[in-house]
Nucleic acid binder design. Structure first.
Length: 115
RNA sequence: CGAGUUGGCCGGGUGAUCGCGGCACGAGAGUGUCGAGGAAAGUCCGGGCUCCAUGGGGCAAGGUGGUGGGUAACGCCCACCCGGGGUGACCCGCGGGACAGUGCCACAGAAAACAGACCGCCUCGAGUGAUCGAGGUAAGGGUGAAACGGUGGUGUAAGAGACCACCAGCGCGGCAGGUGACUGCCGCGGCUAGGUAAACCCCACCUGGAGCAAGGCCAAGAGGAUCGCUUGCGAUCUGCGCAGACGAGCUGCCCGCUCAAUGUCUGCGGGUAGGCCGCACCAGGCCACUGGCAACAGUGGUCGCAGAUGGAUGAUCACCCUCGGCUAUGCCGAGACAGAACCCGGCUUACAGGCCAACUCGUCCC
RNA sequence: GCACCGCUAGCUCAACUGGCAGAGCAGCUGACUCUUAAUCAGCGGGUUGGGGGUUCAAGUCCCUCGCGGUGUA
């Protein structure tokens, strides 16, 4: 589990990020990103729906994404909110595929947001 | 050796690196330690715990259903009885009551529950005759899931428990065994009484309601009474709005009791979740002994065993294990069902593969 | 967490107290027409979500499992 200040913890935060932020997709996941003008650490959250699979596979995907997010968190500017949404086919591919797609999607979203 | 029955267990292992949550210690960096399951699942039962209610009487409603025992309790478990299945080990059974009452039994059939008689059979009468009428009878026929005991004989106009023998079944009595369900034996009776209660129902026994978003504390906010003290409500709110109904409450209803038109309830709309506690040490696991057929209980020893809140057990690598494929001393791929959320006892359902024990039947050998 | 509802032909729905599973649309065949549509005649199509039980007999009653959905906190 990430530290509490680095997590999105409320449903409202998720909705705000997904609706107002920019979006960058890859075949197995989507990254939503939103800059906020506050001096807080960057925060990240995960959305893994029931379409991905049962409880066991959902948790497995969440853990893999969380493990990948740990080093990427430092590279984000302060006040950034990120929501990583797993697509239904995310459980069918291995860790290596997700490890390649997440940094790509994140940097792509950052470029979009800075424009 | 083959075929089978029952019960129990495991359900990947070891190591390294980078990470996560709880707890303990520490000023801190950090160190140490623990960290998913047999079903954590479905939510079908039972309890603990918490709050609310709880003066009495009656009626409902729901559940359970052989007997005895186990248990905190159960719709669970154990043993036994009865019925059914299997050569057998063993398995299956919502397994009380059908003379307390009511209902239903389609189609077919003469007739479907209480006796009756369609075709028959027999006697008498009428008629030349086909046949008709009166009466007796229920053996035979056919229908059906089910037809008023079965077989053989006596008997008769034809027949019939009308009578007899045996058998099946019912009721009563006695003796014996068992805590009991019940079983065995003997005698007597009338000769025969359909099914359905997972149809209503009757009988016996059990059940107050809600649920950890229970509930408590703090912070913050709002309203009323009077400044304070203080009092009531307080996220299950509303003296925020609109509309409607009516006496209301005693958590289903009635009696009864209590309170009261500034009261109470209902519907629609509107609004509200910050932290801490509850929270993890118990009907606890394992081992031994004792009692018991067993479920289980008692005594002693020993162990400490998840506690998150967008929610902790992940990622990678190496070797080993199991399985599958192949170009086969190796290579490649796969590793069941499934993720704790207040806790516990059961039930049910899912589950690759494997292990152990007891027992049964068959065949062969000693 | 608690309280409920539904599952029937390819689709939308019936089947009263247990008693032969049906209707409309769709499909197929034929007729009408130069052809199509419309119309007319006919035909096929069902493990009643799965399994088990009670009953002579189950879509209906009971138990259990699955899928989908609703209300409420």
């Amino acid at each position: 589990m990430l530290a509490a200040p680095s997590r999105l913890r409320q449903s409202a935060d998720f909705q705000q990020t997904v609706r107002q932020g920019v979006r960058a997709g890859r075949p197995h996941l989507v990254v939503h990103l939103l800059f906020r003008q506050v001096e807080e650490p960057a925060r990240i959250g995960f959305t893994v729906g029931a379409q991905v699979g049962g409880s066991v596979t959902r948790h497995r995907v969440t853990r893999q994404l969380r493990a990948l997010s740990q080093p990427l968190l430092r590279t984000l500017p302060a006040g950034t909110n990120v929501v990583v949404r797993a697509l239904p086919n995310a459980a069918t591919v291995g860790f290596q595929t997700l490890a390649a797609e997440l940094p790509e999607a994140l940097s792509s979203a950052l470029r979009k947001a800075q424009r």
